[in-house]
């Protein structure tokens, strides 16, 4: 039996997730795209919009292991990464792995963890390894962190450090469902449909194969230039204290590769870049105080940059 293409993987996961997460096809598309790009996702919105549900559905849809870490103020870094425990019988320290040792890690309410605890995710999110007492431990691949946070609640929360934000491929905002979708959600709940009911639809091997294929999607040099120009435009924007980093440009192209796969394409177009620009760049921009006072938002700035940066009309090869 042949391996499913990235598009088929996307279709299966997307359809599976949407049996629970109703009325948010674009959010699901982006979330699955992040999965195909092997990038971490930060789902941010007010309580009750299905952030955790979306994360759980994604985790349940693939055949690998998944773990959930509920971030609380008393959570310690060791709870996340794991600790060395002295084994009296064998008279030596043994490593007890933490919650990050899974294919999909659901970091729920991540901003309730202390910065010290949040920082425990830095290494594993970027390098896919955990170092405890000078010993490196690799987490299973594919490795995906899906974090949720509530942006409006300030009491008992800790703002995510910029370094951590930069490690998320995308920040998704679920948003309120429309009326029909909300009715469907209610009816599904009444019928007892929950993420726990979902079965894996893609094996770990198929997902890894799809991830590899997505990484191999053709990206013209001009597309890379376009991505770089967008990032550069954010760096020169007067309303921004800091624009997107080169990691942001890379993330833009990788996310575009994945979104191209969701459109059943093996190459990236300027439309793909535009489609992922907001979720990829939005959380990497740090506004100036004046801009914040003037009610500017990262979203409006990214939209402005997109409208003002000419989309390429000819590839590097002229063809």
């Amino acid at each position: 039996m042949s391996k499913p293409s990235p598009y088929e993987v996307y279709e299966r996961i997307s359809n599976n997730v949407q049996t629970v997460v109703r009325g948010k096809p674009q959010v699901v598309r982006l979330a699955v795209a992040a999965l195909l790009a092997e990038g971490h996702v930060l789902v941010e919105d007010v309580p009750g919009l299905g952030k955790t549900t979306l994360a759980r559905c994604l985790a349940r849809s693939i055949g690998g292991t998944w773990s959930r870490i509920q971030f609380t103020p008393d959570l310690l870094p060791g709870d996340i990464t794991g600790v060395q425990v002295y084994h009296q019988k064998v008279e030596r320290f043994e490593f007890h792995s933490g919650g990050v040792f899974a294919n999909v890690v659901l970091a729920d309410e991540i901003n309730r963890g202390t910065p010290k605890t949040q920082s425990a995710l830095l290494e594993v999110m970027s390098e896919r390894t955990v170092t405890v007492d000078s010993v490196r431990h690799e987490v299973p691949r594919p490795f995906l962190v899906i974090a949720t946070q509530n942006p409006i609640e300030m009491e008992g929360t800790y703002r995510l450090p910029e370094a951590q934000l930069d490690r998320f491929l995308m920040r998704l905002q679920v948003g309120y469902p429309d009326l029909d979708a909300e009715i469907m959600i209610i009816m599904s709940d009444c019928a007892g449909v929950s993420p726990d009911e979902l079965n894996p639809v893609v094996s770990l091997a198929d997902l890894q194969q799809a991830v590899a294929q997505v990484r191999a999607a053709h990206v013209d040099r001009v597309i890379c230039q376009y991505a770089a120009r967008l990032a550069d435009a954010t760096r020169n924007h007067v309303d921004l204290r800091y624009g997107a980093s080169p990691r942001g440009s890379i993330a833009l192209v990788r996310a575009a590769q994945a979104i191209a796969a969701t459109h059943n394409r093996g190459f990236v177009t300027p439309d793909d870049i535009k489609e992922v620009a907001l979720p990829v760049l939005g959380h990497r921009l740090i506004l100036t105080s004046d801009a914040e006072l003037n009610q500017r938002s990262a979203t409006s700035i990214v939209e402005e940059v997109l409208a003002a940066t000419p989309a390429p009309t000819m590839s590097a090869t002229g063809g």
Binding site: D220, F267, V268, T313, M314, G319
Partner: peptide, 15 residues
């Protein structure tokens, strides 16, 4: 037209 432009410009293949 968009599909044609995408295929011709960004697929890496000849038109």
């Amino acid at each position: 037209l968009a599909e044609l432009v995408d295929a011709v410009l960004w697929s890496g293949g000849a038109a």
